[in-house]
Simulated scan of single mutants.
Amino acid sequence: MIGSGGAESALRKAVKAKKKRTRSRFSIQTVNLLLSLLLPLGLLAVWQIAGMMGRLNPTLLPTPGLIVEEFVALTMSGELFYHLSVSSWRALLGFLLGGGIGLAAGLWVGFSYRAERLIDPSLQMLRTLPHLAVAPLFILWFGFDESSKILLIAKGAFFPLYVNTFLGIRSVDSKLFDVARVLQFSRWQMITKLVLPASLPNVLLGVRLSIGVAWLGLVVAEMMGSSSGIGFLINDARYLMITSVVFVGIIIFAVVGKLTDSLVKLLEKRLLRWQDSYKGEGVS
């Protein structure tokens, strides 16, 4: 009976310790959330108060209240959802096209020194070309239809994944390749079981950067020549001097970009559980 009582007591202590760790983790997450909201909410409050006091020109800088009203109106009319769905589809196609080719090119160049000498200098030169410089050429070559927009987005999405995949492969410890040769891995086994897992942090970083650049390319593509999309909505509102709609479009781009980045970070966290790296807990 004593042994049974001791086991029950230890079990209760373990349950209490687990609940305490859960509460501690929840409180830390709550504090982090409040800290992240403190600055933007404070800025919004100052902005709204300054606008209500007449210190801001509503044509140049509408108050957050007016922007919310415009957002509700665009949402209720269905216009915002339509433009957002068009933009999201373009960004997805451009990212899949450019990112997929960038991943394949990074693998090829990363494994082959000859391929690096052959195409990497040219690709590095093309990487420095800004979207605004090549957008008129894309429109001239491919017209005003979807092809020019998707290809312009793909052009931006290509390079982050290419560069990070290439660097990820070249940063793999050479001793691992010696182990693979001893185990008589085939080239496919070497890629899937050795190189890709070791270079995955760089590849996922490339995915995050590639998605961000895809959204930037989307803005340029839709503002240069388009009749739909969030970029078109912003450009049309700019011509009509409806600044509140411009702010709605900008906020939509920021929110959707943040959500996609958070999804990739969540995927990164799940795929890289094995990684033991510094998380920043030691500095407040």
Rank of each mutant, 00 (worst) to 15 (best):
Y113S: 13
S277Q: 09
L200A: 08
G42T: 15
I67R: 04
T75N: 14
S277D: 12
V195T: 15
A104E: 02
R208V: 02
L11P: 00
G110I: 01
L152H: 06
G206S: 06
A91C: 08
Q124C: 03
Q189V: 04
V245P: 01
G99T: 06
G168R: 10
S27H: 10
R270C: 08
K20N: 09
L200K: 13
S87G: 02
K265T: 13
F185Q: 11
L137I: 10
M52V: 09
T22A: 14
S174C: 10
I242Q: 09
E146Q: 12
R25S: 11
K265E: 11
I67H: 04
S77L: 13
N235L: 05
L263W: 00
L204C: 06
E281M: 09
G102W: 00
R23Q: 10
V109G: 06
S226M: 03
Q48S: 15
E8H: 05
L137Q: 07
S262K: 10
L126Y: 10
Y278D: 14
L129R: 02
L38T: 10
V163C: 14
R55G: 04
V246M: 13
T260A: 13
D145L: 03
L74T: 10
S226A: 10
D120C: 02
L11Y: 02
S85T: 14
I230T: 07
L126H: 11
V72H: 07
E268Y: 05
W141R: 04
T165N: 12
F253W: 06
T30C: 15
I251V: 11
I119Y: 01
R127N: 14
L140W: 12
P136F: 07
A214Q: 03
W215H: 01
D276A: 11
V213L: 15
F138E: 08
N202F: 14
M125C: 11
A154I: 14
G231Q: 11
W141D: 08
A91H: 07
L200M: 08
G6V: 07
T243H: 04
N202A: 13
I169M: 08
L216C: 08
G106M: 02
I234R: 00
F138I: 12
I150R: 12
V134C: 02
E116M: 01
D178G: 10
M53P: 04
S284C: 09
A104G: 06
T59Y: 11
V219Q: 07
Y82L: 04
I230D: 07
G5L: 15
H83P: 00
A7Q: 09
L167F: 05
V255Q: 06
T63L: 14
L267S: 09
W188C: 04
E79A: 12
F166E: 03
V163F: 01
D236N: 08
F177T: 10
L152G: 00
Y162H: 11
D261T: 12
L271T: 09
L176V: 12
L44Y: 08
Y278G: 07
F81C: 06
M223K: 12
L196V: 15
G257A: 05
L259F: 01
D276T: 09
L56E: 03
F159G: 10
G282A: 13
P62N: 07
V256N: 05
M76A: 12
P130D: 11
K16Q: 06
S228I: 01
T30I: 11
T243W: 00
L267K: 07
R208N: 08
D276S: 04
I251W: 01
G143H: 10
S24Q: 14
R238V: 02
R187A: 03
K269V: 13
A105W: 03
R114K: 09
G65S: 13
S277C: 06
R23E: 14
L209E: 02
I2W: 07
